[in-house]
Design a protein around this nucleic acid. Structure first.
Lengths: 226, 226
DNA sequence: CAGTATCCTCGAGGATACTG
DNA sequence: CAGTATCCTCGAGGATACTG
């Protein structure tokens, strides 16, 4: 990283975190240990070379380390203290900057990935259940999120489980992004028909309890209320 | 700025603040309205073209505006909320990153500029007083800080005021940087002879009350104590 | 004081293919 | 899965001189 040559903590922080992608890598490591390819998947557009260089740089600074398991990476003690930094940056942008998503930002894979990273661990179905995301609009497509008490996993093909364990979530990607970011609620989007749930009634009823949505949704809601 | 194409507040914050120099420009605007050349002086190494482009960008985003006076720039409402962001970033680096200054970071002009921006407004001398900074070491030199109740101004020539209103602060730049950043105290550096005060006794006695030092000094001290 | 205009270089990083 | 290696381009931004 280019330095500033200033003996100032703000300049130091900018040197450490100011490289392109670095802050987003830290953000994605805040959820716990994560592998190289999983990081790459969550950062569309990053090249493998850059991701590799960033991780090595963060390791050299002592902010990222190998987990005891030896696979993937995790934040070190000092790195975990970046939680506050990421939260404050995100809260600021959620309050003052963020608008509706642009067309280019409507990445359905990323959305489902993020949704799958924000699950209510204690509310998940005791028996495997499948949320089938079906997006309408310009580029229709499907994704399946398989949930069990241990968490969720994303499939690009129908996992082919018991049909009674499916719930279908249909709508435009933009509508689901709004729900995720706290610009609207699932209930609102359902009542306006932007998002439709179908499938097993018990699962339709339970689905809203599974997702906790974006960490910044409360701030977005507070900003909208102000 | 390059975008990330992600609908995420953290990515948005990184897009807005992630350009080289931007965060430091915001930092220097947090003290109140400031002019173009004054900004450039506080950011050694920035080119006038880049500074101009950054300011215009921040204006377009609505984070920076012209003060009512029409001269210089100031943060807007949303921009002022970056106070938290800058503080958290700096606190993190002050706690986990910052070390003693490197040789390249020992810029005496910048140090005196920063000292002059952190004055205890209600403790300043009622009559003009001059702090003459005399640095020893590889590149000796002098700077004069003229204080009055309205604040301070830096001179590169002896302002030639009443000699009874002078206090001389001698030492190596590194020692004064340590004091500024909270890695040591003025009293400590004086007791070890790293910094020497001479001149009018009443001013020597009063001098420690004039300076509040870096905003991050308390965090640096807390980190050292831990 | 407060910028704008021009030139020029270097390196950041995207794309891609490859390896263990 | 987890990276490394290579190529290539483009644009960021430093240096400098100039203007109102």
């Amino acid at each position: 990283m280019k330095t500033y040559g200033e003996y100032c903590p703000v300049a130091k922080a900018a040197e450490v975190l100011g490289d392109r992608w670095t802050l987003l890598i830290v953000r994605d490591m805040l959820f716990g240990p994560i592998g190289f390819n999983e990081l790459a998947r969550g950062l569309p557009g990053i090249s493998r070379g850059v991701l590799s260089a960033r991780i090595r740089h963060l390791q050299r600074l002592g902010l990222v380390e190998r987990p005891d398991s030896g696979v993937g990476y995790q934040l070190s003690g000092p790195g975990r203290h970046l939680t506050d930094v990421v939260r404050v940056l995100g809260d600021w942008a959620a309050r003052w900057i963020i608008d509706d998503p642009t067309q280019a930002e409507l990445d359905p894979d990323l959305l489902v990935l993020w949704i799958s990273r924000h699950l209510a661990a204690d509310q998940l179905p005791t028996q495997k259940a499948v949320v089938a995301f079906e997006r309408s609009g310009p580029r229709p497509g499907r994704l399946w999120l398989v949930l069990d008490p241990g968490g969720g996993s994303i499939c690009h093909e129908d996992p082919g489980l018991d049909p009674a364990r499916y719930v279908y979530l249909r709508g435009q990607t933009a509508a689901l992004y709004r729900v995720y970011m706290g610009r609207s609620s699932l209930a609102d989007e359902r009542s306006t028909g932007q998002v439709q749930l179908s499938g097993t009634p018990a699962l339709i009823h339970a689905l809203p309890t599974w997702f906790t949505w974006s960490n910044f949704a409360p701030t977005v809601r507070a900003a909208a209320a102000a």
